[in-house]
Design a binder for these strands. Structure first.
Lengths: 234, 234
DNA sequence: TTATTATTGTCTCATTATGAGACAATAGAT
DNA sequence: ATCTATTGTCTCATAATGAGACAATAATAA
């Protein structure tokens, strides 16, 4: 049964997720590419008639990334009329061989409840949905054009992430369990979009008393080996 | 034409507003009391089929408070199954003489896109809606039980307000155009829920270079008269 | 083995921000 | 003229941050 045949979703309500990952010093997000059209969009979906809104977002992420227990935060609901462009969805569906009546629920107006997720880049197993050719990582600094208002959604997600980063100390969710101080600093720099002072950053992070120091990491480079750290549990 | 006869709203989508005002040193919000039931709820409404989500929230506020140009911020969308309790709305409507079929759109599941507003307490002209006996101010520190998850909505609104207060300097929206430093401090204290140091607060506010100093305010009290301030435009 | 290089962890010192209070100025009451 | 409560501005101690110095060290080159 395809999503189109299902009668089990709430009309007019969708969710979209801005999934952040960090790799090679760059902040990236996941984008789907729809069949034939080449159009890019945020991963998202619909809400089951008997499903919690948050559960729907978690389910969607699990389907695309294979991950459970993701750091996930709802940040805004987009509901302007300007985002109602039924021809966009119609084109995407037509490229998949579906030709719907114009009163079909999927061609109706939708509001998008939007979430952002922070995940460990290395752990993801990407899986496209039935309408997409691919799902892949794109650098946040150099995003292509996305369908509808998805560029604005990403912009707001990044803004929210910036504002929350220090207060909530969530940056570590983008790294593996153990990481070096330099890696953590790179995450902060990528999100804030600016260089930070090494010694000040180290002093502040250690002073927060949230990091646990482990063994050194010998990378084979000819210089002093950095310690590995993890975030203190509870 | 009552809201019940209207076919012009999106199903499943509502908005609710936490309207903050400040008076006599206390932070307060607006609550509606439904006919007969005595039940209390946040002011809210539905979204027109051709209406922007934000516009719907503004329209609702205009109807209840008479105010335009309100500081209004969307902060969260509540969409758990637990908030789907059709008997609540049915009881409210029954108390107003409406007896709807159980498949009526108003008895369906709703998600609530929630906003908070900051307004000048003195400027409001309160107007109940067609299902309510009254709309009135209630102290945030001593709220009664509200229907559904509205207590949780208020809690989240207050939390968001706290988190945004310093970064966005929005506290002045709760005061009239001109105010004393002491009044501004009381607003901050009411929102943070704790006393602040007078001299430090004054120094910080003046140091931000966002206040304009005007004439003194002579209240008739036997002590030095404070200056009036306003927020610098642009 | 020893010198070299790049990076790390920690220290110092200057600058800025904040906490806590002192104190003179002053509007009205006594 | 004196008193009281509050305001605006200072001062000084303490804490946080900016900016850099410097020794430690892991691998490489000599």
């Amino acid at each position: 049964m395809t999503v189109l045949e299902t009668q089990g979703f709430l009309p007019h309500i969708a969710f979209d997720s801005v999934v952040f990952g960090f790799s090679k010093g760059k902040l990236k997000i996941l984008l789907m590419e729809y069949h034939d059209t080449g159009w890019l969009a945020l991963p998202g979906g619909f809400v089951g008639k008997n499903e919690d809104l948050d559960e729907a977002a978690k389910r969607g992420l699990k389907e695309r990334t294979g991950l459970d227990n993701i750091y996930l935060e709802q940040f805004y609901t987009f509901g302007n009329m300007a985002r109602f462009r039924p021809e966009v969805m119609q084109t995407i569906l037509a490229a998949n061989g579906f030709h719907l009546d114009s009163d079909h629920w999927m061609l109706d107006r939708f509001i998008s409840v939007s979430y952002f997720a922070l995940i460990d880049f290395e752990k993801v197993i990407l899986t496209p949905d039935e309408l997409s050719d691919s799902i892949a990582w794109y650098e946040i600094e150099n995003l292509p054009n996305l369908i509808l208002d998805h560029n604005a959604i990403v912009k707001k997600a990044l803004q929210t992430l910036k504002e929350n980063l220090e207060r909530k100390l969530i940056g570590g969710n983008l790294l593996p369990e153990r990481f070096t101080m330099n890696e953590l600093q790179q995450v902060y720099e990528a999100i804030f979009g600016q260089k930070l002072r090494r010694t000040t950053f180290q002093r502040k992070m250690l002073g927060l008393d949230i990091l646990e120091r482990h063994e050194k990491l010998y990378t084979g480079k000819s210089h002093k080996a950095p310690y590995l750290y993890s975030f203190r549990k509870v």
